[in-house]
Design a protein around this nucleic acid. Structure first.
Lengths: 172, 172
DNA sequence: TTGATTGCAAAGCATTTGCATGCTA
DNA sequence: TAGCATGCAAATGCTTTGCAATCAA
């Protein structure tokens, strides 16, 4: 992040516009939640965000974070993603290129990638069925390079490393 | 389905093998659940399957169906899929080609498709990151050809047609 | 006989909703 | 002031778990 203060001017304006257009109201909670969401360049759950927000203002409730994340999604500032652990993660959407994900089922690492060729082929497939896609999701699960190395090492289990995302089920 | 009776010999053998190998036990419930699962060539939820099973033998419980579907998945006979309505669907896995899905967000129709080119590109992308994929999921959401036609017709809302899958959220 | 399996009820977990109170426009 | 927003608690929906009774091997 190399932007100068004040940061996220565009995003904040988009949010205010969206609020105005839809007849909603600007509140201190929504501002704070947006602020902290924007400052956090990771995939986070509603609960993650709640923890961060709560640290700053302990009067803000879980429900408001849930509701605000939906709002941010509608405004085009956030995108929902699922990695297979039955939780909904959110990532920045505005000014971020569309991308897909590889999820390491061992350590939970998430790799973002993009392939224009794959996108094109998807569109071709859709055409073939007369299907008009509005959005899509492509995820690969497997082992990241680091965990492949570690697999040779039986001591993995003894490691205290905590995965960011625990992938419990195969399905997302 | 053009197979001769008795049907699903291979699948049943695989199931028995899996049960034996893992030291589990063969039961009437598991046999019945497998039988009905195999006879149903659709994407179904645990509850769907429970309904069908219960119709045949009303003593079988929900829990057993949940547990047996997990078992079938482990045995390689079933595959879990999600279409975005927060339910887990199961589809046949054995002797069924791998495929991906297009989901109509209007009527819930699910189209299965396969593209070797996309598969290859996925593997190439994974290679590029030193990632070793074990499985993946590609889904396109949008409008099927039929619903695109209907969109011109304002009377859609008045239609009594019930979608097979109601896609409520954007994320799967 | 022994330990896996079952079905019920209860618990879990992430998320949503009802509602009285508070606050923006 | 009107009605949207908030936070709490309760409800929801799907799935899992605890447990006593049952059953396969």
């Amino acid at each position: 992040m190399t932007r100068k203060q004040p940061e996220f001017l565009q995003e904040k304006e988009i949010f205010r516009d969206h609020i105005q257009k839809t007849g909603l109201r600007r509140t201190a909670q929504r501002d704070l939640i947006l602020e902290i969401f924007l400052r956090t360049e990771e995939h986070l759950t509603s609960e993650d965000l709640y923890t961060l927000v709560h640290r700053q203002d302990s009067t803000v409730g879980q429900t408001t974070v849930y509701r605000t994340l939906k709002l941010l999604t509608e405004a085009g500032l956030a995108r929902e993603v699922r990695f297979g652990d039955n939780k909904t993660y959110y990532e920045h959407h505005y000014n971020h290129e569309h991308h897909d994900h590889m999820i390491c089922t061992e350590c939970g690492k998430v790799i973002e990638f993009f392939s224009q060729e794959i996108e094109n082929l998807q569109d071709q497939m859709a055409d073939k069925f007369g299907f008009k896609p509005t959005h899509h999701s492509l995820r690969l699960w497997g082992f990241c390079s680091e965990c492949q190395r570690k697999q040779l090492d039986t001591a993995v289990a003894a490691s205290g490393a905590q995965p960011r995302v625990r992938v419990r089920s195969v399905v997302g």
